[in-house]
């Protein structure tokens, strides 16, 4: 299975992680499995590279973390903050505009809304 090319992934990891964590508190391994499951492995990552993204989001105040023990295993769980919810809304809007614009080009439309 090939990993998704990094150049096509700019900003996407943040969007996916915030969206998944918004549903419920999750830790890194769970998040990667959720991404693989929900994208039917269309998006696959070197699983460890998710942590710098999570740490950066936490540093920006978009995520908060706490250590929690579940089934005898202690893991760092992440949850979305209010700032994170706003950031997610912005990312979703930007993503929708981008995909609409690209779809327009692919369908050969002459006018595409400025991004």
């Amino acid at each position: 299975m090939q990993e998704t090319k990094a150049s096509f992934m700019n900003g996407v990891p943040e969007l996916l992680l915030l969206r998944l964590i918004q549903e419920r508190e999750m830790y890194g391994y769970e998040l990667v499995q959720a991404i693989c499951d929900q994208t039917q492995t269309t998006i696959t990552l070197g699983e460890g590279v998710v942590y710098p993204v999570l740490h950066a989001l936490e540093r920006e105040g978009a995520l908060s973390s706490r250590r929690k023990t579940v089934n005898g295993r202690s893991r760092i769980y992440y949850s979305v903050t209010e700032t994170g919810s706003l950031r997610l809304a912005d990312l979703v809007t930007a993503w929708n505009r981008l995909t609409t614009a690209i779809s327009g080009i692919l369908k050969g439309q002459s006018h595409v809304e400025a991004i």
Binding site: L45, G46, E47, G48, V49, Y51, P52, A56, R59
Partner: peptide, 19 residues
Amino acid sequence: ARLGTADDLAAAMAGRPEF
């Protein structure tokens, strides 16, 4: 192997000036 190569893991962190 699933976790990622040493180069990928290093680059993911080293490429972020905020850290």
